[in-house]
Design a protein around this nucleic acid. Structure first.
Lengths: 226, 226
DNA sequence: CATATATTTCAGTTTTCCCTGAAGTATGCA
DNA sequence: TGCATACTTCAGGGAAAACTGAAATATATG
């Protein structure tokens, strides 16, 4: 690879369809074994192995060995962010309506470690409408006292999150909705709470998440304007 | 191009060294003619033309015709942001010291429409130290009353900037310094002020800017702790 | 109107890199 | 120890894309 053009090299890593499929799958936030990624990208094990070693060399993913499996994951939030930023400029404004095949992933999915898609946007909108969350500046949210009450009720350690070195509560631009939703440490904690409560469950090998019936009830109550 | 993998297609556009060189040059913020971009990327006119038509088709650049020249520019702040985000994950932590050739561009350059590099980081640090600017959240700055006084003194229309749809004052992560500096509408206005006052001047066909002697005096006074 | 310049288009060649089949390494299990 | 599984490495064939030279188009200039 051309070391004189580091950006071009990185872009080339993402430019290959199989590799970008793997990265997109890994944006789901979980570490996945080489074989799972091969299937997700619809390529042979040999190809996947080569692609993964390139991604590893390029610093886009990390690997952890566990027995005879090798689990790959996105190397850093910055990598996730760069891929998301590429997504923002790659998705053309929605034409009429998209194939039903994509509906699930458009409705609710994970975005690295927080929730994205229509559900995330609706939930964030509801939080803002109910003033649990207030937009601050162009990139962040502020948690109000009422917001902190909800987080406390959900057993989320707010002060712990504040102490983390990562962004506390920032806005993330959604590809499909082209609207902001909650990200950062709080976004990740909220997503974890929904998973822990089994309001949503991850689909296998996909970024999409399914809303359970319990989840639907609770989320609708949460989103309902009152 | 593969329409089923929009991110891969966009990445492929950036992945070609000549095209990425053109994009990086255009990140300087000015529209440049096809011929100038061909020279900047060190390719023939024919190649450049082909590459530019691809970038155009991909929506990464826009073009404006003026006589027999065709001036290309970055299509949107989102495109600039995606390229910058790729830059963040492409630049390895500085080894020892980099070739002198890059010193100018490391010291002061434009980043789309605001100032970047060591100078930008120092200036931003000074603003924060003097409390003209206060970090707010993880991604924004807030302008203090003292900060507004300086901007007013510089004949920058603060309320006009606030009304713009773009980000007002956010942080931008610098590739070379790996530190935040001032971006957004205020960052752009400050950069324009420095150019208008001829404290800095653009180098031809480069993102680097030179600090004039007047500029050095004024900037040193500004940065000096008092 | 003729000529020079800026840019694009076209066709052919070369290069790059991705895929595949086969073989190699490492781990788990009986 | 022997075999199955998970993954990686290697070598060769093939396809996509970039470069080059030549020609076309459009605009400025004398």
């Amino acid at each position: 690879m051309n070391d004189k053009f580091p950006i071009a090299s990185t872009a080339a890593l993402i430019a290959e369809p199989a590799r970008s499929a793997m990265l997109l799958t890994l944006l789901g936030g979980r570490a996945l074994a080489a074989g799972e990624l091969a299937r997700a990208a619809n390529v042979s094990a040999q190809s996947a192995s080569m692609h993964l070693s390139q991604l590893l060399q390029g610093g886009l993913v990390e690997v952890a060995q566990d027995g005879r499996h090798r689990y790959y994951r996105i190397a850093s939030p910055e990598v996730a962010h760069a891929i998301e930023a590429l997504g923002v400029i790659s998705t053309r404004p929605r034409p009429y309506h998209l194939p039903a095949k994509n509906e699930a992933i458009r409705y609710a999915r994970t975005c690295y470690d927080h929730l994205a898609g229509e559900l995330a946007v609706k939930l964030t909108d509801a939080f803002v409408r109910k003033r649990l969350l207030v937009p601050r500046g162009e990139r962040d949210y502020e948690i109000t006292v009422r917001g902190e009450e909800l987080l406390a009720e959900w057993r989320i350690d707010i002060e712990g999150l504040r102490r983390m070195r990562r962004s506390f509560a920032h806005r993330c631009l959604d590809w499909t909705e082209r609207r902001d939703h909650l990200a950062g440490a709080v976004g990740a904690a909220v997503c974890q709470k929904l998973l822990d409560s089994r309001w949503i469950i991850r689909e296998r090998n996909s970024r999409a998440v399914q809303v359970t019936s319990t989840g639907r009830r609770n989320l609708e109550a949460l989103i309902a304007s009152n």
